[in-house]
Simulated assay, not measured.
Amino acid sequence: MAENKTVPTAASVDEFLAAVEHPGRRADGFELLDLMHGATGQEAVMWGPSIVGFGSYHYRYATGREGEAAAVGFSPRKANLALYGLTYGPDAGMHLEALGKHRTGAACLYINRLADIDRTVLEAMIRSGYQHVMAELHRP
């Protein structure tokens, strides 16, 4: 079975974000770093070469594939900001309605820039997504 390529690394989160080419995306990345740290209480860790993650959990699929993943995180991509773990909470749908300009994928929330969304709603989604993932881990 293939190994998961998205694993925690010792790479510097600050150096990664400082190297983001687009100045607006770079600034949004540093703001997300502070927002996610504050909402989760977790230190940021690089997962693979391009995901900034907070907290972690162990997963196991019915196929037998298992591994570790960031509880919540983000990646400042060229086209948009990809946010992970924020759409899993039970109140995610309600928050998405109030968030502002965004789109969703299979497991991601995509926004073009933080100026397009309500940061208070985003913070609530980060907190809720993180708490939901962590609660799922500790269920008997």
Score class of each variant (00 low, 15 high):
Leu81Ser: 09
Ala135Val: 05
Met46Ser: 04
Gly129Glu: 09
Thr104His: 01
His22Asn: 15
Ser75Trp: 01
Ala44Gly: 12
Ala69Glu: 00
Ser75Pro: 06
Ala19Pro: 07
Gly38Val: 03
His138Asp: 14
Arg103Glu: 14
Ala11Pro: 00
Gly67Met: 05
Arg139Ala: 15
Gly89Pro: 02
Leu137Ile: 08
Ala19Gln: 13
Thr40Ile: 04
Leu83Gly: 02
Ala92Cys: 05
Phe74Gln: 01
Leu33Ile: 08
Val45Cys: 04
Gly55Cys: 08
Pro140Asn: 07
Leu122Asn: 07
Leu114Gln: 05
Ala39Lys: 07
Asp14Tyr: 04
Arg77Asp: 06
Trp47Glu: 01
Thr63Asp: 08
Ala106Met: 13
Gly100Lys: 04
Arg113Gln: 14
Leu81Val: 13
Thr87Gly: 01
Ala2Cys: 01
Thr9Asp: 07
Leu122Arg: 05
Ala135Asp: 14
Gly73Asn: 07
Ala92Tyr: 09
Asn80Gln: 12
Val13Glu: 05
Ala98Leu: 15
Pro140Glu: 10
Asn112Lys: 10
Pro23Cys: 08
Gly29Phe: 06
Ala92Pro: 00
Leu17His: 06
Ala82Asn: 09
Glu68Val: 13
Glu3Phe: 12
Ala44Ser: 07
Ala70Tyr: 11
Gly93Met: 02
Asp14Met: 05
Gly55His: 03
Ala27Trp: 03
Glu31Tyr: 09
Gln42Glu: 15
Leu86Thr: 12
Gly41Asp: 12
